Computed example of a mutant assay.
Amino acid sequence: MIGSKIGKIKIIKENLFRPRQKMHVVTKVSDDKRTIIEIDNRKAMDVYQEELGYTDATIEEGVFRNPLNLVVGNENYIAAIFSFNKDRSISTFKNIMKNDLICFTDIEEDFKGFIENNIRGATQKETVEGIFSINCILRYLFFDNIKYTSSYSELLHKCANGNHFGIIGDGEQYIEQHINQSMVCAIFTKNR
């Protein structure tokens, strides 16, 4: 629990993925609800590969570029892929239940511009005192792999007027949902 005695706290979540139109129903899961065995009564990996065009040799690329999206009402929550399994199931970092509605995602083509517009849009009309951010480890690893970590950190530092503190987590909580491959941040402002 965080609070502010001098202003407001704005909580935002950000993910770099846009849901695809086609919806799927999870029809079979493991007992621990971390492995999707079937989607639409078919092997989960077969459905994933068919829609996204991956082969067995290229499917690992999907971990960073095409995570699963859990649809809850009008909200979207990313479920990161832990592994693609020999039995053609997909293990995730987030619990997925039988009958959950999911879709696959695509990474924003200009995700760097998307990030900049999102954070600037959330801070531009405010007198920002600081930002506390939590980035998923998979998001950090993706940024690190493409050499974007420093630029991203500089952007948050600038938008926070020099008062940014960020940590890396292995899953974030937003309202009542556990999410992956996302950023959740608290923007502290003087404005009431």
Rank of each mutant, 00 (worst) to 15 (best):
V26A: 01
V26R: 06
T27H: 05
T27L: 01
T27Y: 05
V29P: 12
S30L: 05
D31R: 14
D31F: 13
D31Y: 12
D32E: 03
D32A: 00
D32S: 03
K33N: 13
K33I: 04
K33Y: 14
K33P: 10
R34L: 15
R34D: 02
R34S: 10
T35R: 15
T35D: 07
I36D: 01
I36F: 08
I37H: 14
I37T: 11
I37Y: 11
I37P: 11
E38F: 06
E38C: 00
E38G: 04
I39V: 11
I39E: 00
I39N: 06
I39F: 08
D40M: 13
D40G: 03
N41H: 15
N41E: 14
N41Q: 15
N41F: 15
R42K: 15
R42N: 14
R42I: 13
R42A: 13
K43Q: 14
K43I: 06
K43S: 11
K43Y: 11
A44E: 06
M45E: 06
M45D: 03
D46P: 00
D46Y: 00
D46I: 04
D46C: 00
D46V: 01
V47H: 02
V47Q: 03
V47S: 01
V47Y: 06
Q49W: 08
Q49S: 05
E50Y: 05
E51M: 10
E51I: 04
L52C: 12
L52S: 11
L52I: 12
L52G: 07
G53A: 04
G53M: 02
G53H: 06
G53P: 06
Y54W: 09
Y54K: 04
Y54L: 07
T55A: 01
T55S: 01
T55C: 01
D56W: 14
D56P: 15
D56C: 09
D56N: 15
D56I: 08
D56S: 14
A57G: 09
A57S: 09
A57K: 13
A57V: 13
A57F: 10
T58P: 07
T58C: 08
I59G: 05
E61D: 05
E61V: 02
E61F: 09
E61N: 13
G62Q: 12
G62P: 12
V63S: 07
V63N: 09
V63I: 14
F64Y: 11
F64I: 02
F64R: 05
F64C: 04
F64V: 04
R65W: 08
R65E: 08
R65H: 10
R65T: 05
R65C: 01
N66K: 07
N66G: 04
N66M: 06
L68I: 15
L70F: 03
L70I: 03
L70Q: 09
V71I: 13
V71P: 00
V72S: 05
V72T: 08
G73L: 12
G73K: 05
G73P: 13
G73E: 14
N74G: 06
N74H: 10
N74K: 13
E75R: 12
